[in-house]
Computed example of a mutant assay.
Amino acid sequence: MTSALDRALVEEAARKSALVWVRGPADAPARALWHVWHDGAVWIVGGPDEQPLDGLGLAAGARATVTCRSKDKGGRLVVWPAEVTEPEPGGDAWSAAVAELAGKRLNGRDSADATAARWRTSCRVLRLAPAGAPEQRPGAMPDGPQAAPPRPSPALTRTPVPSGLPVRRRRRR
C-alpha cells in the first residue's frame, strides 16, 4: 500500500515532466517517452509515425517501471512500478485520454480529430497506473552511480584525430 505522500509525489513528478523513462518487463533499456498524466495514470501513445513502443514488452497486464525526473534539477526524482492496461479504442476512457494526448502532441501533422482517428486504427494507447510504493524516491535513493554502460555501437570506436584538424596545445606551467 502506498502512502498519500508517495501518490502525490508520483502524480506531481509525472505532471511536471515532459518525458518519463519506461522499462517494460522485457530485458531492454528504459526508453524516454512523452506522455500525459490523466485519470490517475501516465498515458502514452506509440506506433507508426509516433514514438516506438516495440521491444519494451508493454502488454495489457504487464508490469513496467516508470522513472520521472525532477523539473528543476533534471535528475531522477522517483521510480515507481506500474501496471499496463490497453483500453478498447473508441471507449470512454480511451477517448478522454486521446483528447488529452492530442492536445499535448507537439508538431502533430493532423488536426486533433484526424490524429484520434489515426491512433484508433494504427497506434496503441497505453495506461500506466501506479501499482505499489515507489522503488526510489527522495530519502530512499540507491548509493553509487546508476549510469548504464554505453551500448555496443560502431559509432563508439575511437580513431586517431585527422591530421587536418587543429590541435590544442597544452599550457606548460
Rank of each mutant, 00 (worst) to 15 (best):
A14Q: 07
L77W: 06
A131E: 06
P138W: 03
A99P: 09
A8D: 00
D143R: 11
K71A: 15
A82I: 06
T2C: 00
A8C: 00
R124Y: 02
A93Y: 02
G108H: 12
P87W: 04
T85D: 01
A117L: 10
A28D: 15
P81C: 04
P138N: 06
P145D: 13
T65Q: 11
R158W: 14
G103M: 10
K16H: 07
A41C: 10
Q136N: 10
D72M: 00
E88H: 04
L58Y: 01
S3K: 07
P48L: 11
P48S: 01
R69K: 00
R63E: 15
A8V: 04
R151I: 12
E83S: 09
S153W: 11
A82G: 01
A96K: 05
A131Y: 05
P154Y: 11
P130S: 05
V20I: 04
L5C: 01
A129L: 06
G164C: 14
A129T: 07
P48G: 10
D54S: 15
L101P: 05
P145K: 00
D110A: 13
D72F: 05
A116N: 08
A64L: 02
L9K: 00
A26M: 07
A97C: 11
A102K: 03
R69H: 12
H35F: 07
L101A: 10
A133Q: 09
S70C: 08
G90A: 06
A4W: 08
D54L: 13
A133W: 03
V22M: 04
S153G: 05
P48E: 13
P25K: 05
R151D: 14
A14D: 11
P29R: 12
Q146Y: 02
G144C: 09
R120W: 08
G57M: 02
W37L: 10
R170N: 08
S163M: 10
P152G: 13
R124P: 03
A96E: 14
R124I: 08
D39G: 13
T159M: 09
W21D: 06
V79D: 03
D49W: 12
Q51D: 12
P87G: 09
E50A: 14
R151P: 14
G61A: 09
G90V: 07
T2G: 00
R172S: 15
D39R: 02
C68K: 01
G61K: 01
W94E: 04
L56E: 02
R158C: 14
A155I: 08
P29I: 14
P145A: 05
V78K: 01
G108I: 08
A82D: 03
D6N: 03
D54H: 09
R137D: 07
V98N: 07
P162W: 03
C123M: 06
D113N: 14
A18Y: 00
V125W: 01
A18E: 00
T115F: 12
W80M: 01
T115S: 13
A117P: 05
V22Q: 03
L33M: 14
P160R: 08
W119C: 04
L128Y: 01
E11V: 10
V10I: 11
V125I: 13
A18F: 00
D27L: 10
A26D: 13
D92R: 15
G103Q: 06
D39P: 07
P29V: 15
A114S: 13
A129M: 03
